[in-house]
Design a protein around this nucleic acid. Structure first.
Lengths: 249, 249
DNA sequence: GTCAAATTAAGTCATACTTATTATCGAGGG
DNA sequence: CCCTCGATAATAAGTATGACTTAATTTGAC
């Protein structure tokens, strides 16, 4: 123990399911992302972090290494550890994404996310129309079924919506496009808290989703891409309106 | 030292710029990605890895933690460490991307990459037309200048091409879209080895790139997106032809 | 078939030593 | 006298060792 007391530090029973290293990673990751530590400027030394978290040096080093692996930190002998500029962060890493959302969650961030979806999802719809397997098509159709059931109050609208978008990504059969499952799911879950998607335009929504699904099932790639594009453009416009920003193409 | 010899193991002078932990990360990461260790199946224990690489336990643990941070591994007490399924890997992580390329580099992988570019880059062009700053526009125009100079043999065609695409991503002013800089750069560098882009269609290419740039500078978002889409579709068709696959939308 | 004990492998800790980097200070030259 | 260069010392990360803890799985006894 860093302090001289004989009694061991009473460690809280982890609270979450994380071990000591994991909890330090979470704490430091969150602190870096919220800019408690500024990029390019010095980061506490290993010794200082040991004292701060009451952990041994190996544990602290493992935490720093994990953050280094995600692009948040970089360590050099003697020079110490420095926070990397945001450009070097692995923003698509689920943990980094989560920390960014936990920090001051802004409508601007949601707009950034949706701008990516605007690129990714229509392309996924095009590829799905081209190469979705039987079970993949079935999953898409089932998700539409859930959305229509939700309109009748028989299912959860948000979960059904997420299910549809995730199913299309999966059906693209492109492992890189599938990586955006987390981002899409997160975006949808947070969007509902900020805009009134699920109050104002639910009925039209299921119909429009069905048109995307129909195009995919029919193998009409161009239509699938165009319909998906319209769908997400609608969500983007809602966000831009909520953020009082001018609409964009 | 794991062996009982008194003389310290003669360690090669790192070869690359990596420290011991880094070299083990690279070796294990490469091995996992090339499926020397199969997903879901047991991974060597820490003790075994120590013996295998002649390294101490903290070093091996740090390496395992870094791979865990990238989604390749997962460790639990007593149960040991297991390789995660590919779906959990952070494929957009620059290291993981590099390891995937270093393994049997297939035209299929290049096609997967280009399918993503097909979604990402037109969207970046749309946003760039909408919100590129003065210096960002200038960088785009300069890249076009380099491409035209390359046609006259006065510059490097590949570097100029990369410069253009990276400049458009940067000008999107969306930090998530900027994350694809690595992927685009890598894709272009490898494409040239597999197809004849820079032999067969160089003259038309610079002209078409200029049309994208012109639309961005003019602030014509729809045209910028459409032109960029055509551009990448051309690259994709070349790859599909090289891979003897049917063209896709 | 169920429960408890033993075993195993990762998690944590303490300490010592090594090495690269950089700051500092002194010597030499302008 | 100031500036530059180079040797030296201090620092913080890198590596190594060994011991102990904890949780999960296996094994064996009931």
């Amino acid at each position: 123990m860093p302090d001289g007391s004989t009694a061991p530090i009473e460690r809280p029973p982890s609270e979450d399911g994380l071990n000591l290293t994991g909890s330090i990673v979470a704490a430091l990751g969150h602190a870096i992302v919220t800019e408690s530590y500024k990029a390019g400027r010095p980061f506490p030394t290993e010794a200082a972090l040991c004292a701060q978290y009451g952990a041994s040096r190996p544990v602290v080093r493992e935490a720093v290494k994990m953050l280094t692996a995600k692009g948040l930190l970089f360590a050099r002998k003697r020079a110490g550890t420095v926070v990397q500029p945001e450009a070097n962060w692995n923003l698509l890493d689920p943990d980094v994404l989560k920390w960014m959302l936990e920090r001051a969650f802004s409508i601007e961030l949601l707009i950034d996310f949706t701008d990516i979806r605007m690129g990714i999802e229509p392309r996924a719809a095009v590829l799905a129309a081209h190469s979705a397997t039987g079970p993949q098509r079935r999953t898409i159709v089932e998700a539409i079924g859930r959305m229509m059931a939700a309109e009748r109050g028989e299912d959860d609208a948000l979960e059904a919506d997420i299910g549809f978008h995730v199913a299309v990504l999966a059906a693209s059969n492109n492992r890189f496009l599938r990586q955006f499952t987390d981002l899409v799911e997160t975006t949808l879950r947070f969007s509902i808290r900020r805009t009134n998607d699920y109050k104002g335009v639910p009925r039209a929504s299921a119909r429009e989703h069905k048109r995307v699904a129909d195009a995919i099932i029919a193998g009409d790639a161009d239509a699938a891409g165009a319909r998906m594009s319209e769908l997400i453009k609608g969500a983007l416009d809602l966000l831009l309106a909520a953020g009082r920003q001018p609409p964009r193409p």
